[in-house]
């Protein structure tokens, strides 16, 4: 469904993506992992068509998007919902107006029909009674939920999550992770989650990719990745993964943790 081929992206002298490849099959929930500043969010913005590439191709549903003009690109974007790191809610609008924004801009729905969609999407993210509040009146977790409800408003086939749990307390993090997992199951969408939070990664991912120095260094299912002996990957997982995940039979991990094979 989404295919990233040999993508290169640099900002001035700094090369962020250097021949990066990635395949995301339909219906999967792919987690992009990597250290801060390694280019995870850049990759997500390239998939959303927000950033151009220096070289390479990005295919979404059989269409190569990097060379598209605004109008056809916007047609592709209607299939995409995106939850931004800061939720990126429009400050000047109420919660309901935020969620209904895309409907208001691109459909002929009446106020009443839009209101119905808003209520429905808010219910999906377990929020109610906040329709008339302003983003500034919401907590961090609520903002993320409203951001997610807005991303869902146009019934997207692909949802992009940029650091969905950053800046949230552990309880809210778990709630957001559960919400993402539930939505994937309920809506059968393709999800791409950028995170360096291993709790979140193992909680929501059905596929994982590790980005390091502009390239893909690991790709696969979580249970396969955990057993890969790539030291960079293992170190990353070790410092952040839930303890129950680390309790596995992996010699590299055991070396890191000091656990002895019985």
């Amino acid at each position: 469904m989404i295919s990233v081929k040999n993508v290169r992206k640099a900002f001035d002298e700094k090369i962020v993506l250097n021949g990066f490849d990635l395949e995301i099959p339909r219906g999967e929930s792919l987690v992009i992992m990597g250290r801060s500043g390694c280019g995870k969010s850049v990759l997500l913005k390239i998939i959303a068509g927000l950033l151009s590439v220096d070289a390479g191709e990005v295919w979404i549903d059989g269409t190569e998007i990097t060379q598209l003009k605004r109008k056809p690109l916007n047609q592709i974007r209607r299939k995409i919902g995106m939850l931004f790191q800061s939720a990126a809610l429009f400050d000047s609008m109420s919660v309901a107006e935020n969620i209904a924004f895309m409907l208001d801009q691109h459909t002929d729905l009446t106020e009443q029909e839009m209101r119905k969609v808003v209520d429905e999407k808010l219910k999906l993210v377990d929020l109610d009674g906040v329709q008339e509040l302003r983003p500034a009146q919401l907590s961090g977790g609520m903002r993320k939920r409203v951001g997610l409800a807005r991303a869902l408003a146009f019934n997207p086939e692909i949802i992009l999550y940029d650091e969905p749990t950053t800046g949230l307390d552990p309880v809210t993090c778990t709630e957001i992770n559960e919400l993402i997992r539930d939505l994937n199951q309920q809506l059968q969408v393709t999800s791409v989650v950028v995170t360096h939070d291993m709790h979140s990664a193992f909680s929501v991912g059905t596929l994982m990719v590790m980005l390091h120095e502009g390239k893909q260094i690991a790709y696969g299912k979580p249970e396969d990745l955990i057993n890969e002996e790539n030291p960079i990957l293992q170190q990353f997982i070790l410092f952040g993964a839930p303890d129950q995940i680390l309790n596995i039979d992996n010699p590299t991990l055991k070396e890191f943790t000091g656990r002895q094979t019985e």
């Binding site: 927000l50 605004r70 047609q75 790191q85 990126a88 809610l89 429009f90 924004f101 895309m102």
Partner: peptide, 18 residues
């Protein structure tokens, strides 16, 4: 510029609004 820094302009783009 505040909208740019808080990614609200990116959000507009993703939602197909120029």
């Amino acid at each position: 510029s505040t909208m740019k820094v808080t990614e609200q302009i990116d959000a507009l783009e993703v939602m197909g609004t120029n």
